[in-house]
Design a protein around this nucleic acid. Structure first.
Length: 589
RNA sequence: UGGGGUAUGGUGUAACGGUAGCACGACUGACUCUGGAUCAGUUAGUCUAGGUUCGAAUCCUAGUACCCCAGCCA
């Protein structure tokens, strides 16, 4: 097989090296470890696709594990949405089953006992102590960027006392915040994470999974490495901000491994698995924000209609907008992965969904802003069923019938009384093709005498062009426009979505302002449109291309009486570019 | 001002001392019953300054810019 040498990203190179050296026995086991404190966004999709993709590529395994170590912030609603989103994206974790959404899902909280035991082991090894300092005192004694911290007065408690106190912390003898368990590392370290970090805090809080069993909860830094270790994760892939935590992550595992041996003959038994943490740059996209905090604010303050508002960069938002998992996967693959803090242009994502929908979406004709056209030489009582191709990119999608009659609607934009050069659509005396129907020529413009507003257009059709075909005389037209038969048109609701923010970087904020100042007031436009009858039986979630306009998805707000369609993305529009340039030329001249 | 990272066309991403390539965008043109799609072409880049070398994006030295770290968040 002639195999093309595909370029490798830095993570693949690291894994390849591990496989060469045999560090993990040529195994690859990755995971996606979300905290259930918000909805997943497109940045998480990058991580999911990366982790899952590596597992697939190397024939390894992939876990979905909830990092549920902080009961104060975590909720079941988020758990459910995250599971749904990861499934929808197509990532398959160990133990995934169709009949039970939670099958195979792992919880950090299941390891609480094991983590507790290791904490006791660290105390016994003299590497951890119970500290009575308040939060404020801890932060004051931690030092600054340039000054080392100072040791806690409780740093040198005896092993026995620490053991006793820690046990009583667990039993619930002390109030929240009164004590912590801290690792005894180095108050002089230039890395703050090593200045005696807190391992456990007291939190009398009911946990969504373990209930009231625990009133001490492990900190992320203490817990995370062990979660990976227990599961045999080989490559703990995370974002850049955890780079400074890697020495701590390694310290915890190495410290547990002190006095342990590979064969289990050491005083503390067998060594535990030590994963390799690898950090990559999180995804940033233009015209949106990606922080959970800000997304939560948009939802809570009602700037959008929920986490799955189609303008949100959440996975559920994109799903409702009409995005496909394939498009998101392709996007995540195409943007690559590196350590450089980059900002991806939104058009990359839009391009990915156009690409996929162009292949799979059936076409329909929908008029957003109707202008009546009367075809004066067409019989008043006649209706013809025109055959229309459902998808020119996919012959197997077949054809459908579209009714044609004397009175039709076209897009108001598709007529101009005084057209500029290069305008190919309808104008007085001009001829265009009605897609799949006939050539028509504009003969009259009927206006409201009072306002001058164009009320309707009169036109004549050429019977020799039936089906939209070129006539035998060889005549051609440059423009083809969409239409719906007036008598057969079905009203539908359409939601036109645009960027949520009108600045590439919404966090570029004027002094005293907020990112909310950068919200696009026109991110949603509601339209009453007229659709061809074939759209009437569209099902929820079904995706279509409305010819010449864009891709649309049937929203769950649809009723039997009225369809609601969300615009996923527009079609590329070169005319708008020409149009935008034209006035400049006039001005310049 | 301590520590940890990162710098390649407009935007991303390759190159592992040997012709700076690819994708997206932008711009031309061809084709077209969607001003869509498709096809062809053009455009444009190694953070700076020195050094090593026959040869440097890559190695060395010194700078510059940006990101992360002082939660009992993750």
């Amino acid at each position: 097989m002639a195999e093309e040498k595909s370029s490798r990203n830095f993570i693949q190179e690291i894994i390849d090296e591990h496989n060469r050296s045999g560090r993990f026995g040529r195994k690859v086991h990755t995971r996606f470890p979300p905290e259930p404190n918000g909805y997943l966004h497109i940045g998480h999709a990058k991580s999911i696709c990366l982790n899952h993709g590596l597992a697939v590529e190397y024939g390894g395994q992939f876990n979905l594990r909830f990092d549920d170590t902080n009961p104060e912030k975590e909720e079941q609603e988020y758990v459910n949405s995250i599971i749904e989103d990861v499934r929808w994206l197509g990532a398959k974790w160990q133990g995934l089953r169709d009949d039970d959404p939670q099958a195979g899902v792992i919880w950090s909280s299941n390891y609480f006992q094991q983590m507790y035991d290791w904490a006791v082991e660290l105390i016994r090894k003299g590497k951890a102590y119970v500290c009575d300092l308040s939060g404020e005192e801890v932060s004051r004694t931690r030092g600054t960027l340039t000054r080392p911290g100072t040791a806690s007065p409780y740093r040198d408690r005896s092993v026995e006392e620490n053991l006793d106190l820690f046990e009583r912390m667990r039993k619930g003898e002390f109030p929240d915040g009164s004590k912590t368990l801290r690792a005894k590392i180095d108050m002089n370290s230039p890395n703050f994470n090593l200045r005696d970090p807190i391992m456990y805090r007291i939190m009398h809080e009911t946990h969504h999974n373990t209930g009231d069993k625990w009133c001490i909860y492990p900190m992320y830094d203490w817990a995370h490495g062990f979660e990976d270790s227990i599961e045999g994760i080989t490559h703990s892939i995370c974002t850049l901000e955890f780079e400074n935590h890697r020495p701590l992550y390694d310290w915890f595992i190495n410290t547990v491994n002190e006095g342990r041996t590979d064969d289990g003959s050491g005083p503390w038994g067998r060594k535990i698995h030590h994963p390799q943490q690898i950090e990559f740059a999180r995804l940033n996209l233009t015209y949106t924000v990606m922080s959970k905090r800000l997304l939560l604010q948009l939802v809570k303050e009602g700037h959008v209609q929920g986490w799955d508002d189609p303008r949100m960069p959440t996975i559920s938002g994109f799903r409702r907008r009409g995005y496909t998992p394939e498009a998101i996967q392709n996007f995540c693959r195409d943007i690559g992965v590196a350590k450089f803090n980059s900002v991806i242009e939104m058009v990359r994502l839009e391009n990915a969904i156009r690409d996929h929908l162009n292949q799979i979406a059936q076409r329909r004709m929908v008029v957003m802003d109707p202008l009546k056209v009367v075809i004066t030489n067409y019989p008043a009582d006649q209706v013809e069923e025109m055959e229309a191709v459902n998808n020119p990119e996919d012959a197997s999608a077949g054809t459908r019938r579209v009714p044609f009659s004397r009175e039709i609607y076209i897009e108001r934009d598709d007529f101009m009384e005084n057209p500029p050069k290069k305008y190919f659509r309808l104008a007085p005396g001009a001829e265009v093709r009605l897609r799949y129907a006939y050539f028509v020529k504009c003969t009259d413009v009927v206006k409201d005498p009072a306002t001058g507003e164009i009320k309707e257009i009169h036109a004549t059709f050429d019977p020799a062009t039936r089906g939209g075909n070129n006539p035998p005389d060889g005549r051609k037209v440059k423009g083809t426009i969409h239409w719906v038969s007036a008598a057969h048109a079905r009203p539908i609701d359409v939601r036109l979505y645009d960027h949520l923010f009108n600045k590439e970087n919404p966090m570029e904020i004027p002094v005293g302002g907020s990112f909310l100042n950068n919200m696009n007031p026109n991110s949603l436009t509601l339209v009453n449109a007229l659709a061809e009858p074939a759209l009437a039986d569209a099902k929820m979630g079904e995706r279509f291309q409305f010819e010449r306009q864009g891709y649309f998805c049937v929203d769950r707000d649809s009723t039997a009486q009225r369809l609601v369609c969300n615009r996923t993305v527009t079609l590329k529009d070169t005319w708008s570019k020409i149009e935008a340039q034209t006035p400049l030329i006039i001005k310049g001249g």
